Computed example of a mutant assay.
Amino acid sequence: MTTSTSHPHPHPHSHPHPHSSPAPTPGTGHAPSHHGELLQGVFLDTDGRPRAGLVTLPVDTPGTRADFTPRPGTPPDAVAVVPGGRTKAARAARFAVALCAERTGRPACGGTLRLAGGVPLGLGMGSSTSDVLASVRAVADAYGLRLDAGATARLAVRAERASDPLMLDARPVLFAQREGRVLEVLGAALPPLLVVGCLLGGGAAVDTLGLPAPAATGAELRAYARLREQLRRAVADGDAALLGRVATASARRAQHVLRHQEFEGLVALARRTGAVGVQISHSGSVAGVLHDPAVPGVEARADATRRALDARRISYTRTFTVGGDPNSPRGTASPRDGYSWTPKGCSLH
C-alpha cells in the first residue's frame, strides 16, 4: 500500500527537555551521511504535480558532530563556524537560533559552531545536509529542544536549497529534496544488501546545485513512475534483485548528465561478479555494487568485485551491509570485515 504524507515525520511538534535551563547552554548534535541514491528523478505527488524526488541508500558512518557554544549578548546572526567555509551550516545555525528562541522565549544570540566528522565533501554523500542537520540539532540542544523531523527538514531546505532525508529514520522514503517533504513511505526497510563501495571519475567533486534539473516530460514521468512502482514492490517483497534493477536503471538515466566514463564498465563487472545491480550518487561520484547477501557465496562475490574494481582502476572505498529487519543488527548500514574508507588512489576529504 502506498503511504503519502506532507510531513517527513509523524510527530509535528518539538519536544523540550524536561529540565531546561533559562538560558542557552552549549549543545551537541549528530547526523549521519548516505551513500548516494537508489532512485532519483521526477515523480507526481498526491495532487498530480511533478516533484523532484529521491530515495537514498542510508549509511550510519561517516557522520558529522556539531558543537554550538552560545555567546549571550551577541547578535543572533553572529555565528562563527569552525572550520571556516561551512556557510550552509552557519546559515542553518542562524535559522535554528531564531526558531528555538521563538519557541522557548529565550534570548536569540550568536555563538561558535564547531564541526567534526569524516563525511567526504563533494562526492554525493550528503555532506552538506549532514553538516546542516548536526548544526540544527546542536542549536536545538543548546536551547533545550528536540526539533521534529518536519521542522528540521524545513530549516535544511532554507539553508541549502535542497536537502537529503537524513533527518528521518532508516525507512526507505521517496523524498522531495527541494521541498523537504516525504512523497511516499515505501515500506519498513530495504531488502538486505551487501554494498561494495567505490568512486567514479577519480572521486572528483560535483557541484550539486550546478547540475540541470531533471526533465518533467510525459515520457520521463511515465518512466520514473514505473521505477517507483518497481521499487515499492521490491521493498514490499524484500526483493534485492528487483531493487538492483531499479537502481541500475536510475543510475543509467543519470548518465545523461553525469557521463561517468567508467559506468558501463561498472555495470559489466557487477554482472560478472553476480551482483544484482549498481547504485550511484546522482549528484556526485560515489557508487556501489549491490549484492544479495541471501545468495550463497556473497563474501567470495564481494572479494571478486573488489579485485575487478582494482583491475579497472576504479577506487574502492569500503564494503558494508544495509537493509533487512530494522530490529536486527543487520538492519542498519555498517562496515564489514574491518573495511573502512580507503584513500588509495584519490582524496576523500
Rank of each mutant, 00 (worst) to 15 (best):
H9I: 09
P10E: 13
P12I: 07
H13D: 15
S20E: 03
P26G: 00
T28C: 05
H30R: 12
P32E: 07
H34M: 09
G36S: 12
E37C: 10
Q40Y: 04
G41F: 09
T46S: 13
D47V: 01
R49Y: 04
G53T: 08
T56W: 11
V59A: 13
D60V: 06
P62K: 06
P62N: 05
D67L: 13
D67E: 14
P70A: 08
R71L: 13
R71Q: 13
P72W: 00
T74A: 15
P75K: 08
R86V: 04
T87M: 03
K88H: 13
F95C: 03
F95R: 09
V97P: 00
R103N: 01
R103I: 05
R103P: 01
T104D: 05
G105R: 11
R106T: 09
R106Q: 15
L113H: 01
A116R: 09
G118L: 05
L121P: 02
G126V: 10
T129C: 07
A134T: 13
R137S: 06
V139W: 06
A140F: 05
D141Y: 03
Y143W: 14
L147D: 13
A153K: 09
R158N: 02
R161C: 01
A162P: 00
D164Y: 00
A170W: 09
V173Q: 11
L174I: 06
A176S: 12
Q177W: 08
E179A: 12
R181E: 03
R181A: 08
L186W: 01
A188K: 11
P192Q: 01
L193M: 04
C198L: 03
L200Q: 00
A205R: 15
A205H: 07
T208V: 07
A213Y: 04
T217S: 15
G218E: 10
E220V: 15
A225K: 03
R228E: 10
D237C: 08
A241T: 14
L243T: 14
R245F: 01
T248L: 11
Q255I: 11
Q255H: 09
L258E: 02
H260I: 06
Q261A: 14
G265W: 05
G265Q: 13
L266Y: 05
R272A: 15
A275Y: 00
S283K: 10
G284S: 08
V286C: 14
V289K: 02
L290M: 08
H291F: 11
D292C: 05
V295D: 06
V295I: 14
V295S: 11
P296F: 08
G297N: 07
E299M: 02
A302S: 12
D303T: 11
A308K: 07
A311Q: 11
R312M: 11
F320G: 15
T321D: 05
T321H: 13
V322W: 07
G323L: 13
P326C: 09
S328D: 14
R330D: 14
A333S: 12
S340R: 11
T342F: 02
G345D: 00
